[in-house]
Design a protein around this nucleic acid. Structure first.
Lengths: 197, 197
DNA sequence: ATGTTTCCACCTAGGTGAAAACTT
DNA sequence: AAGTTTTCACCTAGGTGGAAACAT
């Protein structure tokens, strides 16, 4: 039996954000994640058929607030305990062949994150997350057995450097600066002197 | 056993082009097809796993030329017989679940067509086709059997209205006009009066 | 002569944070 | 007061046919 290894290809940039406290914008229609989650795989069975699942998991029960730095809000402001399971979501509902997975990087570019539960309902490309709450992406690999026809978990990958707090508006200016400097789609904000608004 | 049916969702627009003789631009880097191939499925086994294959198949051995209308070129200009198999290509190398296939339209938007053999080599998203030759897309569905582990052909769909001749430059002005009026990406050519070049 | 390649203006499509308006 | 929504200028990314240059 091989040893399965999963690595985060984009770890360097996640690490930079993590050092100052990663924030991710969410909104009603859904916003993409930056940096991207990109994973590489080793040690899979070349002929194996795998199901890859990405979840966003609450890392604690707190609501957070930013006052110069991030700190847990008072217990009274906590989101009710029974809804903690809500932000989970199954993604990428297909089978991959092991040899395919190992020869190229798996980029999660298709999903968005929303604070609107209705928007996410029944969709495989939309995560419902709570603003001011802390999440970490969790990647799960299951292998399809031919006989009996069943899915067997073979690996779980959860990298603490990908932890983030969901926000509707950036709280830490350092985060904004790094988003603008690193994300090509924010290039319009790199030299603000010429902007009109 | 169910009766499997496949239909071309975009048939109306293909029919319009077919009435004047459909042409498709090809080039070195690869050009997308317009109209799109969009198929709908019925009668599949909801739990079945299917492999969908799209091929571009030569419909005859001729080289064609346009002189007011399309006509076969002289036999001496024919492409060598032994290379007729070349323009075939396997596409969409994954399994679909029957219930998924039946509930939404399958849009082939990912592939391009090129006249450069090197460009297409080893790629699942690039067709190598010969300019001035006539092709028709052929869709094949195979079902994955669990035991024994084998692919079984269950349906083939080939619609004569999707026949086209590959060109590096449109030959028939009527085709150009219809491409410009129907393809959103060609909107810049709809009112030529304002164009600079 | 005939067909191909390259470059281009002009689009579609959609991902950014800023700022102002809005909500509670 | 604090957080959310809306709108927007400004980008990235890339799909069009035209026209001129190029190739054979």
């Amino acid at each position: 039996m091989n040893h399965i290894s999963i690595s985060l290809v984009t770890e360097p940039i996640w690490e930079k954000f993590d050092a100052i406290g990663t924030e991710m914008i969410i909104n009603k229609v859904g916003r993409k994640m930056f940096p991207k989650l990109e994973y590489a795989f080793k040690g899979l069975h070349p002929d194996g058929r795998y199901k890859i699942t990405l979840k966003l998991v609450r890392v604690d029960e707190n609501r957070w607030k930013y006052c110069g730095r991030w700190m847990p809000a008072s217990r009274g402001e906590q989101f009710p305990m029974e809804t903690i399971a809500l932000p989970y979501g199954e993604r990428e509902d297909r089978f991959y062949i092991g040899s395919d997975l190992m020869k190229e990087v798996l980029v999660f570019d298709g999903f968005k994150m929303t604070n609107n539960n209705e928007q996410a309902k029944g969709r495989l490309d939309m995560f419902h997350v709570l603003s001011m709450h802390k999440y970490v992406p969790v990647l799960t690999i299951q292998q399809q057995q031919d006989y009996p026809n069943v899915l067997v978990p073979v690996a779980v990958y959860r990298n603490p450097k990908t932890t983030f707090i969901a926000v509707t508006c950036y709280q830490n200016d350092e985060v904004t600066k790094m988003k603008v400097s690193q994300n090509p789609f924010a290039k319009g904000f790199r030299d603000k002197s010429g902007r009109k608004r």
